[in-house]
């Protein structure tokens, strides 16, 4: 029994790895193509820009991955991001002398609170994740507008410390990249090396079984949504700091990009599977696309269509790779 299980784990791991390799190949080919069209693409400064721009999406995608692994989804992250970013922005505006860390904590706390409410609705309230987060998406967005009172927080109203959060180099690398890397690492260890992390997978792959085996499913759900809220709050801070402006309509519709990054990275929307490295690759692919389409001097009217087609190709290639691998595995078993 255990041996068999091990084998299946090994096989599924190799599928995930092969898919990652497929994605890497896709990214490499795409990059070479872009480089031929515009030699500015593979320069340090452009890659730096691209990574920084992909950071927020990456951080959110890690949270979203955990939610999707449990079989859920969170559509409210764009609103949560705006709400926590706005809360922190307003705090900085009204208390210019307060330490920056307080603003950061406020942002993350607001995000976590929003995520906790989502988690409660899903875990304890029995509301399906899509509905719960769709509803709360409206609520959080409305709250953002209301606390802001129709105003924006502008660059000159923020102190330098707050703006430096996203604009600080450690060892020559931008702080946002560091933060994203740390989030990725923590998520990797949490999901692979802690008992709670494994339970997240268990809840998604077999809800009933994990319930019977004594996992408190509700609590795991509340946990992942709270984490999602927390990373949304963090992203909100980074967003406001990087663009030096807090607006009510910040990150509207951003959730769809994040979900796309997850699924491109091999996270199954039905739950139970998904790996941190895959999500990193998915984010990277979307980041490259967003960065390179303007560089290629593609007409702005063509950008969306091309973006959509490439995502579609990536998804289908992904499936093809998986099918081939599965078939080969099946053949090997017959022998």
């Amino acid at each position: 029994m255990t041996a068999k299980q091990d084998k299946s784990i090994v096989r599924s791991l190799s599928v995930a790895r092969l898919r990652d390799i497929g994605l890497v190949l896709f990214i490499v080919i795409l990059s070479i193509f872009i480089q031929f069209r515009n030699s500015q693409f593979l320069t340090i400064s452009n890659l730096n820009n691209m990574l920084i721009n992909a950071c927020i999406m990456g951080i959110l995608a890690v949270g979203m991955m955990m939610v999707i692994i449990t079989g859920g989804i969170d559509l409210s992250i764009g609103s949560t991001l705006a709400l926590s970013g706005m809360s922190a922005g307003l705090f900085v505006r009204d208390n210019p002398d307060a330490p920056v860390i307080i603003a950061v904590l406020i942002g993350i706390a607001v995000g976590m609170a929003a995520g906790f409410v989502n988690g409660l609705l899903v875990g304890k309230g029995g509301v399906l994740p899509l509905i719960a987060t769709l509803g709360m998406m409206n609520v959080y967005r409305g709250l953002t507008y209301i606390i802001a009172g129709g105003a924006w927080v502008s660059a000159h109203q923020m102190n330098d410390g707050f703006k430096a959060i996203s604009f600080y180099n450690i060892l020559g690398i931008n702080s946002m990249i560091w933060i994203a890397a740390i989030v990725f690492l923590i998520a990797y260890f949490f999901l692979n090396y802690t008992r709670t992390g494994r339970r997240v997978y268990a809840v998604g792959s077999n809800y009933e079984a994990s319930q019977i085996s004594g996992t408190n499913v509700d609590n795991i759900q509340i946990l992942v949504y709270t984490i999602m809220g927390g990373v949304s709050g963090l992203s909100g801070i980074l967003w406001v700091s990087r663009f030096a402006s807090a607006q009510g309509d910040t990150a509207q519709g951003f959730e769809m990009n994040v979900i796309a990054a997850c699924v491109l990275g091999g996270v199954s929307i039905t739950g139970g599977s998904g790996k941190v490295p895959g999500v990193a690759l998915g984010t990277l692919l979307l980041g490259i696309l967003r960065n390179s389409l303007p560089l290629l001097k593609v007409s702005p009217f063509w950008q969306d269509a091309i973006y959509g087609v490439i995502i579609m190709i990536a998804i289908i290639v992904n499936v093809m790779v998986k099918r081939t691998v599965d078939k080969r595995n099946l053949q090997r078993r017959h022998i």
Binding site: I73, M256, I259, A260, V263, S268, I269, T270, W302, Q303, D304, A305, I306, Y307, G308, V309, I311, M312, I315, I316, V319, K322
Partner: peptide
């Protein structure tokens, strides 16, 4: 094996893009 959410997410971008 593709989830409808991701496929229609992609076609959404395509159709609006077109």
């Amino acid at each position: 094996e593709l989830s409808p959410m991701i496929v229609t997410l992609a076609t959404q971008t395509m159709y609006r893009g077109l």
